[in-house]
Amino acid sequence: MTPTPLLTYTLRLADNALVLGHRLSEWTAHAPTLEEEIALANLALDLVGQARMLYDYAAKIEGKGRREDDFAFLRDDRAFLNVLLVEQPNGDFAATMVRQLFFAAYAQPFYAALAGSKDETLAAIGAKAEKEMAYHLRHAGEWVIRLGDGTEESHARAKAALDDLVIYIDELFEVDAGDRALIEAGIAVDPAKIRPAFDKALGEILDEATLALPKVSHAHRGGREGLHSEHLGPMLAEMQVLHRAHPGAEW
C-alpha cells in the first residue's frame, strides 16, 4: 500500500530533523569552544525532540503499530525522505554553521506557517518548533557573520561552505502532487509563500557577513524520494548498528 501524502509529509519533516540533529551530535567533545559545545548540543536536542514528535505522529497516521524507533533505526537509507542538505557531513565549523543557517532560515518560517495548519498535531508541533528554529537561525546567523567578517581564513572557509552547500537550497522548497493536495486542504505549508522570508533573512545575514550567495548552475535534489548522497548510508549504519544487532530489545 502506498503511504498517504500526510504520512510522507510527516516522515520527510521527521527525517530532516533527525538527520540534522544526528549530524550536530557528531560534534560532541570536538567543538571549538566549551560554550559552543553546549550550543551545538542544544540545537541537536531540539531537532531530535522534533523528530520524536513527528515519528510518533507518523506512527499514528500509519496505524500499523510501528513506534518512533522503528522509523529511525529500522529503515534503510532508500526509505529516508530527508533533503540532501541535512545529510551533508559536518565538514569544518563553517560548513556546519552554513548548513544550519540554510536549514533554520527555511525551517523557522516553515514551522511558523505550519502552526496555522488545519491538522492539530502538525500545528502544535509547528508552534513549538518555530520557537526553536528562531534561535537556531539567530545562532547560526551570528556565527556566519563572525566567520564571514572575521579573519581572512574564516572568510575563505565560510565562502567555501556556501559554494558547497548552495546547490541544496532549492530542494527545501520543492512541492510534489501529494504536498499540493495537502496545501490545498490547508494542512501543509506552501513553500512558495515562505521563500521570501528565507531570501530576506539569508540576504541580510550574508550581507553583514560580507559574503554573497553563489550562483547555482544546477540544484541538486532527490532526498525527498529516497535518492540520497553517499553520505547518508554510512551515517545510518553507525546510528542503527546497535539497535539492529538486538532485534526486539528494549533500551
Binding site: 544526528h22 567533545a29 548540543a41 541537536a44 536536542l45 531530535v48 546497535l242 539497535h243 533500551w251
Partner: peptide, 18 residues
C-alpha cells in the same frame, strides 16, 4: 552518542554530556 540504541537514550545522553 552516534550509536545510542533509541531516540530517547540518544536525547538523554546528549543532554547529560551537555
Amino acid at each position: 552518542v552516534t550509536r545510542a540504541p533509541s531516540l530517547k537514550r540518544k536525547a538523554i545522553l546528549i543532554s547529560k554530556i551537555q
